[in-house]
Amino acid sequence: MAADEPRHAYFFDQLPKSLITAPADGATLSADEAVEIEGLAWAGENPVESVELSTDGGGTWVDADLGEQALGRYAWRRFRAEWNPEAGKHRLLARATDTTGRIQPTRVAEPDPEQTEIEDDSYPWNTQGYGNNAHRPLGVSIHVGLDDA
């Protein structure tokens, strides 16, 4: 590799990732009670510093509570938050940030050989999708007092 060529570090480094594990994708919940949102986050060599959650598809974000300290590099970190949902459909998202300040992006960029780093909240596109760490939406349906009878 020539000295002036980009390293494409994002293809080689483990970037911040997060995954909501509860409630289950597509769940129907009651707005009469609080819901526990839980998940896991990891970031490779750099520990997870924070996780944010959105219940409106990314319009607003709040900090999740992180569980115990990670057991070391590459270890997963649990996160949780209590949510009091209102009636309607909601799209839950989680995004992690590592100790270097790298934030999990929203999407993968369109093909662009010039993009070698996260720009405009999008991960650099590559043919095989290696290293893609964009957060994945998790849809949850909420209902209030509907009687199925």
Rank of each mutant, 00 (worst) to 15 (best):
D98G: 06
S50T: 13
S30G: 08
I142M: 08
E33C: 00
E49L: 07
W42K: 11
A75V: 05
V140S: 08
Q14M: 10
A149Q: 10
S18V: 06
T97E: 07
A22L: 07
E36S: 11
L93P: 08
V144W: 05
G129K: 14
R107F: 03
T60G: 02
V140Y: 03
Q14C: 08
N46E: 09
R80T: 14
G131V: 03
V51G: 02
D56T: 03
F12C: 01
A64W: 02
A64K: 07
T116H: 11
E68Q: 10
D120F: 04
T21Y: 03
Q115L: 12
D63K: 09
L66R: 13
P47F: 01
D120Q: 13
Q115E: 03
S30K: 08
A64F: 04
D147T: 14
T28R: 14
L93H: 10
G129E: 03
G145E: 14
E49F: 04
T106D: 15
Q104S: 05
E36Q: 11
P6S: 04
D63W: 00
R91E: 09
G44R: 08
T100K: 13
G88E: 06
D148L: 12
R77F: 03
I142A: 04
E117R: 11
G131C: 05
A75Q: 11
Y123Q: 05
P105S: 05
R7V: 13
H8D: 11
D13S: 12
D147Y: 09
Q69S: 14
K89I: 02
L40F: 14
Y74G: 00
N126L: 03
A3I: 12
R102P: 00
A109V: 00
E38Y: 00
L138F: 04
Q69A: 15
P137I: 01
I20D: 02
L29T: 01
Y123I: 02
G72L: 09
S54E: 08
E5C: 12
N46A: 13
N84Y: 08
D147M: 10
R91G: 05
A81F: 02
D121K: 03
L40A: 12
L146R: 15
P47E: 11
A3C: 07
I118S: 07
S54L: 09
E52I: 01
G67Y: 10
E68G: 07
G26Y: 13
D98N: 15
R102K: 10
I20M: 05
T116Y: 06
P23W: 06
P47Y: 00
A9L: 15
A34S: 13
V140F: 03
F79L: 08
I37S: 03
P105D: 08
I37N: 02
E117V: 02
W61Y: 09
A70W: 01
T21G: 06
E86P: 01
H90Q: 03
G26N: 11
G72M: 08
Y74M: 11
A2M: 13
N46C: 04
V140C: 09
A31G: 12
P124N: 02
G72W: 04
H135D: 06
V140D: 07
K89G: 12
T97V: 14
G57H: 07
E36Y: 00
E52C: 03
R80P: 00
K17G: 15
A81K: 06
A27T: 01
R102V: 13
P23E: 03
D13Y: 13
D148I: 09
A3F: 14
A134V: 04
L15C: 00
L71R: 15
S50W: 06
E5Q: 11
T106K: 15
S54C: 08
